[in-house]
């Protein structure tokens, strides 16, 4: 296991908690170009947005390699706490980020970069005619959810509680992409996922809106991981993600602005 470094770096992040008003992917202001590898662990729902962000960042900082890995935020934070090498963590929920902060493994205070509403994912053409949360309680509707330990599963529980609907899911999937794939393969009739995942799911899935009073807004925090071997580049990457250009890219994938 890796000993967690205790090097304190004097990277001051301006405007914590909000979008920093920095130029788009400004190459290192201090003159020396950034280099090395930035390992980014990001929530599965951020996959497409962060692939684009990584490419754009390396275009401006050609000597930096961005290595991104996507999974359930809860799984990623568990990996970091167990000593996985990571420079940046982007979470789909605040509790997972809180675990990083509580473990004293966050270098900077987390900044919110996006938010996301939940939707009901159904098969193309909505064969089971699902129009509301109450339909998910119908016995002829096969529902899969994220596991309660995974952010999207915890959010689904909150949504059902708010709406007063009791649902008996057939499976608790390990992350939100697995829920979408079960719906797009037709194994499940419905699942609760992020609106962005419905968009990313292509032609085989479509979304049914959940009314605002029952919906949960998922907020996505990002933070640098303490002990990073490449703290400068990690901070620059976070600045880029939180810059107006970065937020535009993220919003382009259907996320709500922070």
């Amino acid at each position: 296991m890796r000993g967690v470094g205790t090097i304190l770096l004097a990277v001051q992040v301006a405007a914590c908690g909000g979008a920093a008003p920095l130029g788009p992917a400004a190459p290192a202001a201090a003159g020396r170009p950034l280099s090395g590898t930035v390992t980014v662990l990001a929530a599965a729902s951020l996959t497409d947005a962060f692939n684009v962000l990584g490419t754009e960042f390396t275009r401006v900082n050609p000597q930096v390699t961005v290595k991104a890995s996507y999974a359930a935020s809860s799984a990623l934070v568990a990996q970091i706490v167990q000593g996985a090498e990571a420079d940046v963590f982007a979470s789909a929920d605040e509790p997972s980020m809180r675990r990083l902060v509580d473990a004293r493994l966050s270098e900077s205070s987390p900044r919110i970069i996006a938010s996301n509403k939940l939707q009901i994912a159904v098969g193309a053409g909505n064969p089971k005619k699902i129009s509301a949360l109450a339909d998910l309680a119908r016995p002829d509707v096969v529902v899969v959810l994220g596991a309660p330990t995974v952010p999207v599963g915890a959010y689904a529980t909150q949504v059902f509680d708010k709406a007063g609907v009791r649902v008996a899911p057939k499976s608790h999937e390990a992350d939100v992409k697995a829920v979408v794939s079960k719906v797009s393969l037709g194994e499940a009739d419905a699942g609760i996922v992020y609106g962005t995942d419905v968009r990313a799911g292509g032609a085989k899935v479509q979304g049914v809106d959940i009314p605002d009073q029952h919906n949960v807004i998922a907020r996505y925090p990002i933070a640098a991981v303490k002990g990073s071997k490449n703290a400068k580049a990690a901070a620059a990457f976070i600045d880029f993600v939180a810059s107006p250009r970065g937020l535009d890219v993220i919003a382009g994938f259907g996320f709500l602005r922070p």
């Binding site: 899969v144 596991a147 899911p169 057939k170 499976s171 608790h172 999937e173 390990a174 697995a178 079960k182």
Partner: peptide, 11 residues
């Protein structure tokens, strides 16, 4: 987990 899913007591 891919084929049968994950549900306590069932899979």
């Amino acid at each position: 987990i891919t084929f049968a899913g994950n549900f306590r007591g069932e899979t």
